[in-house]
């Protein structure tokens, strides 16, 4: 059924991967992220790194939907937009501090997840993909057309979460780390196992008593909340949001991060997200070919290494 070439790691590779998969890899990554501003702290570098961190959060949210549960969501940016706009509107219109908008954002994104998921999750997986794409566009066009969202020019003057970019960066890193760990914990729990059962074989999962529809909806809602909270960070970082930030391209980039890193693999999607968000900075000269290269890369990854750069390891440690 599945493409070949999953596990043929010799003992050495297995030992290496165990080291990488352990929490040490995550801790090392965190330390790296925390030390980065000491190496380079220009406003530009900080903004790039903050964006990368937010992108990591998006990828870890989408990973719950695509990687764990196997549902292709091509409009994931819709939740990002819902979160950003909700906090943006509330903070500018009602003068709330950004943090105070978070509970509302969670409620709104849960509702958005249910509204988008409930009618579509009964459909075949490929229909779901295109419907989510449609939803992503609907949200963007709606934001573009409504007055409350500021129309095409968006919302300005959103208060930041922190006084300086450095503090904001650290805050973002902490929040994103918590989000990544949370997503990973959910993935290993009863719920996360059920997601994987659904991904592997929906009928067998049903036969074991897994209410596949509810489980899929849960994945959707979790993804929505992660995306929405990332949207709050995004609004706080830029202090201005407009529909142009929430195009299909953005959804596709998050998907690429997940696929490239390794669907269902937490360290994989983190690395994937960092690579996708920093690559353009490294390859400035090839800006025109960037998305072309991403498209080709996506095909090649699926053909040659569908499990991604840092695949999920199904083998359990025998304790």
């Amino acid at each position: 059924m599945t493409a070949p070439g999953a596990t043929r790691a010799p003992a050495l590779g297995r030992a290496a991967s165990r080291l990488l998969d352990s929490r040490w890899a995550g801790l090392a990554g965190l330390v790296l992220a925390l030390l980065a501003p000491f190496v380079i702290a220009t406003p530009y570098a900080l903004s790039v790194m903050t964006s990368a961190a937010i992108f990591v959060m998006l990828a870890s949210g989408l990973n719950m939907v695509v990687g764990f549960c196997g549902l292709l969501d091509l409009g994931y940016v819709a939740f990002f937009a819902v979160g950003a706009y909700t906090s943006g509107v509330l903070s500018t219109r009602l003068g709330l501090p950004l943090l105070a908008t978070v509970p509302v954002v969670i409620v709104v994104t849960v509702i958005a997840g249910v509204v988008i998921g409930a009618p579509t999750l009964r459909l075949r997986s490929d229909y779901l993909a295109i419907v989510t794409l449609g939803f992503g566009e609907i949200i963007r066009i709606t934001a573009n057309n409504l007055d409350v969202t500021g129309g095409p020019s968006g919302i300005y003057g959103i208060p930041s979460l922190a006084t300086s970019p450095v503090v904001f960066y650290y805050l973002t890193v902490v929040i994103v780390s918590v989000a990544v760990i949370g997503a990973s914990r959910l993935g290993r729990s009863r719920l996360g196992r059920a997601w994987r059962f659904v991904r592997e074989d929906e009928d067998a999962a049903e036969a074991m008593g897994v209410h596949t529809y509810k489980i899929k909806l849960a994945a959707y809602i979790a993804g929505a909340v992660w995306g929405g909270l990332a949207g709050v960070l995004f609004a706080g970082q830029l202090s201005a949001i407009s529909p142009g930030s929430f195009t299909f391209l953005q959804s596709a980039l998050v998907l690429m991060a997940v696929v490239l890193g390794g669907m269902g693999s937490t360290p994989g999607v983190v690395v994937g997200a960092i690579v996708i968000s920093l690559l353009p900075e490294v390859l400035r000269d090839f800006a025109g070919y960037r998305f072309f290269a991403f498209g080709v890369l996506l095909i090649i990854v699926m053909l040659v290494r569908p499990q991604g750069l840092w695949p999920h390891r199904s083998r359990e440690a025998s304790s």
Binding site: R196, F197, D203, M208
Partner: peptide
Amino acid sequence: FQNLRLFGEMSVLDNVRAGAH
């Protein structure tokens, strides 16, 4: 199932854990 329907890419233990869901 007539033609085995295991969760192939999950561990054997996880497969059985499905029963405990």
